[in-house]
Structure formats: C-alpha cells, structure tokens
C-alpha cells in the first residue's frame, strides 16, 4: 500500500525484556494518543456511513420515521434522467477540469520556480482566487461574463472576436463552468512548487550539464521527482470535482439552467434531500458517489505504484 507509513524493522522476540516492556508502553501510548481520533472517526464517519446505507434503503421524507423499501431507491435512480444527466455532466467536468488544472498548475509552478524577484507577489496572485468567498466568486464571474454587456465580451468583441454567450448558451455553459473551476488552483500550484523546490540542487544542476534541452529535463528528471505531488493533486482534485456544488447551484439553480447543462451530481442530491424531501433517494445517491470515488481512488493508488517515484529508490 502506498499510503502506509514506512515501518521500522522490528525484531521483538529477540529484544531484551526491558526493551519489550518499553515497547508495550509505547504501543499503549500509541493507542491512547490515537483514541480521540478513533472515537471521532467512529462517531462522525463510520457510523454515519452505515446509517446512510440504511437510509438509502428506506422511504424517508425527513419528517416522520423511515420505512424500509429495500432497493427501490436504487431502481428509481436508474430510471431518473436527472441522475444520468448530472452524472454525465459531473464526469465530463471532472475528466476535463482535473487534468487541465494539473497541467496549468504545473506550468505555473515551473514558472514560479524560476522567479527570483516578485515571487511573493506572483504566489499571492495565484492563490488569491482560492481566498475569495465561493459565492462571491461565482457572482463576479456571472457579472464578468454577461453576454453583450459584460466586460469580458466587450473586450473580446473589441479584439474582433465573436465570443460565446458563456452561461446563457446550453452548449457553452458546462465548458464555462469548467473554465471557472480553473481559477482557484493556488493550492495545486503551491503543492507543485513545493515539490520542485525540494528537488536537490545537484540533481537539477547535473541535468543542466547533461542535457541542454529543457523538455528533456522536464520529462525525464523533474516530472518523476514530483510524481508524489501529482498523485496528491490528482486524488484531491477528483474528490473535489465530483463534489462541485456552490458554483453550480449559484449559476444554474436547482434545475441546472440552461437546459440542464450545469446540473451537477451534488445539486441533484441536494435538491432531492432538501427540496423534494426525498432522503432515501439522496442517501442512495450518496452511497453511489462513495462507491465510485472509492473505486477510482483505489485504481489510482494501484496504478500509482508504477508511475509514482519515491526518493530512496523504492517503488
């Protein structure tokens, strides 16, 4: 497992008694220190997860008691066009937004890594969108992208271009949402930058002498060294893009206007729970999301063995 901690070699049975006693004390302490978190995880993660699986098999209208209905909610989901539409939108969103975000963030990090002057300024600017309140961010984008009268379209038209209607056009709205998701990539950029700065000087300088071609160096020296950061950004990116909510509901409302093009999985889940009071269906959607995310991350971790490079040579 790539996610487990490195384990120091242990040879317990051969150690002298005093040491074994100390080991037992350490083990007790380990459990003791982890106990609050184990309790917290049980109360706030494990138990609710079980309850969610239970609610998913009930008819539960939020007020009153849940009633067992077996797999009916899952069957209803399979027949629900909103489920499929939102799943499709969310998958497209994730499949395009996540890689694009990683590439752009990596590009920015490579650029930042060369900065001598103004590094602090650039870093702040790239991080800024992340610090804007999400609701305000979406509202500002809607103002900027207003067809005809918005500043972006006025500027583009002045340059002789024929800009799209962005959020008004059903064909363009999802792509606009993807475009907007590329703004807050300060975290990803800083993660990559951290990785780049940790590359030992002798390695990168040796590469400078060996091969003057930058692309070569990037692909064969730099990229392998920051693959742990790529893995981190990829996993976190996928989880968050599957949960895109605030932007989508501010822009598309509960019906994903225009023409359901911005209808996202979380919006459908949220409206099932708090607009239609159909908690059973919402829980069923939550469990589906859980299973999909679990499978995806397991797959990523599984393949990660072959492409993530760890210092010290072990793979």
């Amino acid at each position: 497992m790539p996610i487990t901690a490195p384990i120091a070699p242990q040879a317990a049975p051969l150690l002298p008694r005093r040491n074994r006693k100390a080991q037992r004390a350490e083990a007790r302490a380990g459990l003791f220190f982890a106990l609050p978190w184990i309790i917290g995880m049980t109360i706030f993660v494990a138990l609710p997860l079980i309850v969610t699986f239970y609610i998913a098999q009930t008819k539960f209208q939020i007020v009153g008691a849940p009633k067992w209905v077996g797999l009916q909610n899952y069957e209803a989901l399979l027949r629900d066009p909103a489920f499929w539409k939102s799943a499709q939108n969310t998958l497209i969103f994730a499949a395009i937004s996540v890689p694009l975000k990683l590439i752009i963030a990596l590009g920015l990090a490579l650029l930042l890594n060369r900065a001598t002057a103004l590094l602090g300024f650039y870093r702040t600017v790239f991080y800024l969108p992340f610090l804007m309140p999400a609701v305000a961010g979406s509202v500002v984008f809607m103002l900027l992208l207003t067809p005809n009268a918005g500043p972006v379209n006025i500027a583009l038209e002045a340059m002789g271009l024929n800009p799209p209607d962005w959020l008004l056009d059903p064909k363009a709205a999802l792509w606009t949402l993807i475009l907007l998701s590329l703004w807050p990539l300060g975290v990803e950029t800083l993660v990559f930058l951290g990785g780049l700065q940790n590359i030992p000087k002798d390695v990168s300088e040796a590469a400078d002498l060996d091969s003057p071609k930058r692309w070569h160096k990037l692909v064969w020296i730099t990229l392998p060294l920051i693959t742990p950061m790529v893995l981190f950004n990829l996993v976190i990116g996928i989880i968050y893009s599957f949960q895109v909510f605030t932007q989508a509901i501010v822009i598309g409302g509960t019906t994903g206007t225009p023409a359901e093009s911005t209808l996202m999985y979380m919006v459908v889940l949220y409206r099932a729970a708090f607009r239609y009071f159909n908690m059973g269906l919402a829980a069923a959607m939550a469990t589906v999301l859980f299973v999909v995310v679990l499978i995806l991350t397991l797959l990523i971790f599984k393949t990660a063995r072959s492409w993530v490079h760890y210092e010290g040579g072990e793979t």
Binding site: T257, A259, R271, R275, Y276
Partner: peptide, 30 residues
C-alpha cells in the same frame, strides 16, 4: 404534496420546448 418537484419538472419541460430540444408533446409527457 410534490410542489417543488413539479415546478422543477415544468421548468425543464418549458426550457426543452423553447430551445426546441424536444417537441411539445414529448416534453410535457415526460
């Protein structure tokens, strides 16, 4: 008792009809 659900369905049908994504009868039947 399913007012919000109905409203969202009407919104969807109306949008489909006006954008010609679907004929009137099909959108309403759905």
């Amino acid at each position: 008792p399913v007012q919000s659900f109905y409203t969202d369905q009407i919104a969807r049908a109306v949008e489909k009809i006006y954008t010609k994504a679907s004929p009137v009868k099909d959108a309403l039947s759905e």
